[in-house]
Simulated scan of single mutants.
Amino acid sequence: MKLNLQDIPRVKTLSKEDFLKDYFIPEKPVVFEELSADWPATKKWDFDYFREKAGDVVVPLYDGKPAKGRQSSHGPAKKIPMREYIDILEKGPTDLRMFFFNLLQNCPELIDDFKYPDLGVKFFKKLPVLFVGGEGSSVVMHYDMDLANNFHFNFVGEKRVILYPPSETKFLYHVPHSIVSMEIINMDNPDFEKYPALAKAKGFETTLKHGEALYIPSKWWHFIKYETASLSMTLRSLPQKPGRIAEVLKNLIITRNYDNLMRKIKGQDWIDYKNRKAIENTHRSAGIE
């Protein structure tokens, strides 16, 4: 048995009118194959370039181990200069990842290497961020807490991306008081005996290669597997709908702080409780006994 996934539509590029009508307004994903073809970044950005431009910048790295007990769910595994991290990436598989590396704060000169595409959306220009991962590493299935519309540009390597729309949340073992699915689930090879509801979820997939960009609509679930060491950049467009804005505030002010507090108070008991509820809630919603 396999996940029920269909290919994400692909286009070379699109007019802003067609993008808004066919993808942005109906909230459907799409891969742009040539959206960044004329950017300097598409030609220049590789690991050697970042070793030269940002080699001395100390970066936080995260591994694939779930947080336990009272550990912070957002804490890095280590912090090292970027050139040392790139050396690790080039040696072979590693689960170490770097995410949400703010270009404006750390390498402001690199913003001249790209431009914000004219797609009829308002970009949040204070937060162009890099995501880097080693071969074999992965990102747990989640949706973004700020419910941004993401435009994810890949410059180095290849990564597999699985997406699910919000309508499929009931099948995805959503952990209560969080924006993630259960970390123990291997989305590359899920155990359908333990997690049968996943077989009912209808999603999308693609493999992003050099120079390609993926539009991930607001509140869509995404799982990312680094097939090779990879470097990508995300440009974000924040939600404009009042209901979504209210949900963002709830996520940032209430959900995150409550979860952190309970983790500090109850430790591993809180994590175990949430995982049990994720299974119970999902199987109830999916009609599985």
Rank of each mutant, 00 (worst) to 15 (best):
M1A: 00
K2H: 14
N4M: 04
N4R: 09
P9H: 04
K12D: 03
K12S: 05
K16R: 08
K16C: 00
F19Y: 04
L20E: 01
D22E: 13
Y23T: 06
Y23K: 04
I25S: 07
E27M: 09
P29E: 05
V31Y: 03
E33Y: 02
E34M: 02
E34T: 09
S36R: 02
S36L: 01
P40H: 01
T42D: 04
D48P: 09
D48N: 13
Y49V: 00
E52P: 00
K53L: 14
A54Q: 01
G55D: 05
P60G: 03
P60K: 07
Y62W: 12
D63T: 06
G64N: 14
G64S: 15
K65P: 06
K68Q: 15
Q71A: 14
S72C: 00
A77E: 10
A77H: 08
K79M: 10
M82P: 09
L89N: 02
D95E: 11
L96Y: 10
M98N: 11
F101A: 08
L103W: 06
C107H: 00
P108G: 11
E109T: 13
L110H: 10
I111K: 11
D113K: 07
V121H: 08
V121L: 15
F123K: 06
F124H: 13
K125S: 11
P128K: 09
L130N: 00
V132I: 12
G133R: 01
E135P: 03
S138A: 07
V139C: 07
H142L: 05
M145H: 06
M145V: 08
D146V: 09
L147Y: 02
A148R: 01
N149L: 00
N150I: 10
I162S: 06
L163K: 03
Y164R: 05
P166I: 06
P166L: 04
S167V: 11
E168K: 06
Y173S: 01
V175Q: 11
V175L: 15
I179A: 07
I179T: 12
V180W: 13
S181M: 09
S181G: 15
E183Q: 11
E183Y: 09
I184A: 14
I185A: 07
D191N: 14
F192M: 08
E193P: 02
A197I: 15
A199S: 15
K202H: 14
F204M: 14
E205G: 06
T207H: 12
K209D: 05
H210C: 07
E212L: 03
A213S: 13
A213P: 00
L214C: 10
Y215T: 02
A229Y: 01
A229G: 01
A229P: 00
S232Q: 01
T234L: 01
S237V: 10
P239D: 07
A246S: 13
A246T: 10
V248S: 10
V248E: 10
L249I: 14
L249R: 13
N251R: 12
N251L: 15
N251H: 15
I253Y: 13
I253V: 15
I253W: 11
I254D: 08
R256F: 12
R256Y: 12
N260T: 12
K266F: 15
Q268C: 06
D269C: 04
D269A: 15
W270Q: 10
D272W: 05
Y273P: 02
K274Y: 06
N275L: 09
R276V: 10
A278E: 08
E280V: 03
H283E: 11
A286R: 03
A286T: 02
A286Y: 03
I288N: 03
E289C: 05
